[in-house]
Design a protein around this nucleic acid. Structure first.
Lengths: 144, 144
DNA sequence: TTGAAATTGAGAATCAGTCTCAACAAAATT
DNA sequence: AATTTTGTTGAGACTGATTCTCAATTTCAA
């Protein structure tokens, strides 16, 4: 579970496990899919817990460092995150009409990328693939 | 040539071909590879031409609209652009040590992505693949 | 050449994200 | 348990990229 990992991570670095950090992590773990710092902040406030944007951003950075969450993408409206603990690595299709994100994964695609890296003498660590276009629903809408 | 395309694009929309816009486009076309708005702005000033950040940003947006350049990536230090007129579609490897960008292209990879889209009923329009890791040079440095 | 309409540039405004610092809380020490 | 040490918090200041505002200027069609 994420809590254990985070506590361990914090303690290893002489950092502290605080109510605020726990609240933020809990909120992330309890909601599915992608999220952004601002709505996370608002959700926590809504719950009646006190927090600040500064703490949310600080905690998100810590969670990234310990690998529990990942920065998916920077947009014009800020950064989108997702939690990695739950699901494995995957790539994204982003509908340019409705903003919906479809996750997908292909072993072949991963292997192929490794091959490309080897050919360039590049040591790959991670990657992001985003395919932009139109999802099923929005294609239909367009036709009408 | 890019100038023609840009002029046509501007006229079609009742926009004007100005010295400033021409200077910005020229500077972009005359330099290879990726660029960011701030250094573009500084380069133009350096040449003794007068311009403003506002104009640079405005022109970059126009050039994106008409397809002459593309937003490659948003980073914590701003947006990186590249001009599309010159080279074909390609993907990127980004060295996390030195920031160097390696361009690569794989037909197989493209086909594979098309396949993934089809399987999801997704109509792909464009995509970005970024592999992060360490380039040859930086791998060597690390060993020592 | 002229004038309506678009463009420019300087600086204000905006917005995500970080930093500052005094008040506070957790862990360590007594 | 009380005290000291050290990390954390939150409010708001700050930063840096980008956009907006608006008066002055430039373009271009007639």
């Amino acid at each position: 579970m994420g809590k254990r990992i985070f506590s361990k991570f914090l303690k290893e670095r002489g950092k502290r496990v605080t109510k605020e950090r726990e609240a933020i992590l809990q909120k992330i773990l309890s909601s599915r899919g992608h999220f952004d710092p601002e709505s996370l902040y608002l959700k926590i406030k809504e719950m009646g817990l006190k927090t600040s944007r500064a703490s949310v951003y600080r905690t998100l950075n810590l969670l990234c460092e310990c690998g529990l969450i990942e920065r998916v993408k920077k947009t014009e409206h800020g950064t989108i995150y997702e939690h990695t603990s739950v699901h494995e690595h995957h790539d994204h299709m982003l509908c340019m009409e409705c903003g919906n994100i479809i996750e997908f994964y292909s072993e072949t695609l991963e292997k192929l990328q490794e091959g490309m890296c080897k050919r360039q003498g590049f040591q790959g660590v991670s990657h992001t693939l985003e395919i932009r276009g139109y999802c099923k629903k929005c294609q239909k809408k367009k036709r009408t």
